[in-house]
Amino acid sequence: MAAVNEAAGDQQERVLCAVEDGVATITLNRPDQLNPLDRLTVAALLEQVQQLEADGSVSIIVLRGAGRAFSAGGDLEGYMQLYRDRPEFMKFLRNFNLLLEEIERSEKIYVAVVHGHCVAGGLELMLACDIVLAAHEAQIADGHLNFAQLPGAGGSQRLPRAIGALKAKLLVLTGRTIGGEEAERIGLASLSVPRSELEAALDGLIADLKRKSPLGLKGAKYLINTGGLGARDAALELELHYVHHYATTSHDAYEGLAAFKEKRKPDLKGE
């Protein structure tokens, strides 16, 4: 955690955060360099995410980048120094992986908004999110091997789980770039719209999420993420017991049925 503390004083420059009506927006804020995910930025992101995880008033977290990029990936010049400091490089990799695990294991919903370049580490950050909203004009790539690098923040594992091994190998081994429409077509993006419609699409998406039970959103995310890691039979058994507990103990599950029966909007309390 030393790297997190080191970044604390620099967080406002590298990472911005705004909270409004239960929705937090984290913005990578180094547009002149296409928002690189260097050591200090990753540490600042991790610290910001951990703060939001402790904030019970926030249920949705939007990740986006300032300027022309979501994130064009790591700081390759900085890596030249990190490679010579093996303990520090491992600390960086640990922090990056911890950040993505925090996002995946969170009970909150993370939405990545990708409008421009999303490459290498940017792609790895995007892959950890629950929903990816991409502009048609987005430029999405793995790109590591273009400079003889390898994905070190889960890209080699999350990408094939998202789009299949053959498509993942195509993107990783060739380093080719795809747009938002193709990303949606192959399952790398949840939804793609023209750049001019991106903000309206985000507003609609957030409105859809906020109409749902927070407890239900938490449960659905947990079942999809956890079930996908194990064998099918074990995952089905996990779903069975989780849904049984949810349906028989939560206010929202019963209230949803009552609202359907009475043809009214459900009064969801997140419990």
Rank of each mutant, 00 (worst) to 15 (best):
A3M: 08
A7W: 03
A8Y: 01
G9C: 02
G9Y: 03
E13A: 14
V23Q: 05
A24E: 11
A24W: 08
T25E: 15
N29W: 03
D32E: 15
L34A: 12
N35F: 03
D38L: 00
R39P: 00
L40K: 14
V42S: 01
A43K: 06
E47L: 13
Q48W: 00
Q48Y: 00
Q48A: 08
E53L: 13
V58A: 05
I61N: 05
V62T: 09
G65M: 03
A66G: 10
A66W: 01
F70Y: 15
A72H: 10
G74C: 01
E77V: 06
G78Q: 04
G78D: 10
G78M: 04
L82I: 02
E88I: 01
E88M: 04
F92D: 13
F92E: 10
L93T: 13
R94I: 11
F96Q: 02
N97L: 07
L99P: 10
E101N: 08
R105F: 01
V111C: 06
V111D: 03
A112R: 08
H115C: 05
V119N: 13
A120F: 12
A128T: 05
A128S: 15
H136K: 04
E137A: 06
E137D: 10
A138Q: 02
A138L: 04
I140Q: 03
D142H: 04
H144T: 12
L145M: 13
L150N: 08
A153L: 03
G155S: 04
Q157L: 12
R161N: 12
A162Q: 15
A162M: 13
K167E: 15
K167Q: 15
K167S: 07
A168H: 06
L171E: 09
V172T: 12
I178Q: 11
I178E: 05
I178K: 09
R185S: 14
R185N: 10
L191C: 10
S192N: 06
P194L: 05
P194T: 08
S196C: 00
E197D: 15
A200F: 03
A201T: 05
L202F: 07
G204N: 14
L209G: 07
K210C: 02
R211P: 02
K212L: 14
S213P: 04
P214D: 09
L217E: 03
G219M: 15
I224C: 06
L229A: 12
A231E: 14
A234T: 06
A234I: 02
A234Y: 05
L238P: 01
E239V: 07
L240N: 08
H241K: 13
V243K: 11
T248H: 11
T249K: 12
S250V: 09
Y254E: 14
L257E: 04
L257V: 13
A258T: 12
K261A: 13
E262Q: 15
E262M: 07
K263R: 15
P266A: 09
D267F: 09
D267T: 07
L268N: 12
K269C: 08
